[in-house]
Design a protein around this nucleic acid. Sequence first.
DNA 1: GTCTATAGGAGGATAGAC
DNA 2: GTCTATCCTCCTATAGAC
Lengths: 212, 212
Amino acid sequence: MIKGRPAATAEEPGTRLRILQSAARLFRTRGYASTSLRDIANAAGLKAGSLYNHFASKEAIVTDILNMGVQTVFDRVRAAVERLDDEAPCRELLRAAILAHLTCLLGEDNFTSANIRIFAHVPPHVRDTTLPMRHAYEAYWLDLLKRCRAQRVIPARLDAKVASMYLFGAMNWSLEWYRPGRHSVEQLADDLAALFLTEPRSSVSADVARAR
Amino acid sequence: MIKGRPAATAEEPGTRLRILQSAARLFRTRGYASTSLRDIANAAGLKAGSLYNHFASKEAIVTDILNMGVQTVFDRVRAAVERLDDEAPCRELLRAAILAHLTCLLGEDNFTSANIRIFAHVPPHVRDTTLPMRHAYEAYWLDLLKRCRAQRVIPARLDAKVASMYLFGAMNWSLEWYRPGRHSVEQLADDLAALFLTEPRSSVSADVARAR
DNA sequence: GTCTATAGGAGGATAGAC
DNA sequence: GTCTATCCTCCTATAGAC
């Protein structure tokens, strides 16, 4: 993580953060290679050359964005899960985690969505840099699913790793079709949870209604 | 669909098809913008300028690839479904369709995978060109899922459109994690079908064993 | 820290010989 | 139909004034 400044956590974004936000939005929509430093600079309200007062290269920018993308969604999902009671059924843990992931991915923060969209097409060594954090996040979900399986909430015969990849796919692909006005993220999270979880003893709809 | 030649369906690929195959492979792995015409020409065994004897532009190449990608997977999925008895349970229809889609996506044909990987990042008017075919393919799956829901094979309360998007996500995201040696496509298709389908009256494992 | 100006290279596309 | 050579544009990155 490159950090040559006092970590812009002020109320005003600060130039460095503004650059990252502008770049993330462009990467999310146009992709990595199609977004030029001029585009980024222009969106951030400065000239291309000025970017180099804050970052060493385009790769440095995208590296930070990828890392922040994972960090953000990981923090939010963990917070959502830990907000629940330790004794909460896995059914609710999973639903809360899905909602947090979708909210982060589909919200106004462009870091996570940029990460998902461009990860496969950034230079390999940039990808490698962010792999450890990505793996940690995946491991967290894998553990969550294994607990679900232990409670018979997802089919026991299923490989948990494969199930977690399918779950990631269902969630991350929403970037391709989600439209803010047409869907409610809460409803989407409930639907996905219902798809992945086996039917509970009580009816699913009652369960969902209670969770709202 | 650009077609200035007698449709190279011969045993030897033909230059035009060889260009498309090389380009699809590069687009799949590196993305659209990061793949230059020089890269494509080199992979196809000729020089950059020669590409223009077969295509009007880079956009013409990628347009053909996107269209072929949808066409291919649509044909294979439809064939797999129609190979089954008309009275076959939806449970089997869906499993066959999933297997066909995954086989096409993860196999050696790079057109479908290239489509999935680069679709979001090609120029907008190129994207628009292939949208009708894509929508037709999506409509086919939506119909499949509605039939499943009518047979109570997926939960009735679920919006079929949303369910189909989640299913697409689970399938298409496999491009990001599937590794040929480590997974069997048949097993993956069974697992995904098991995830999406409600438990049958008989046990799932017996059902799966029968289908093999 | 931001600007202007530009170096140095790569990309898409074209012209014309063979 | 393929080649070489080249045009022109855009890109990342740097230099130096303010």
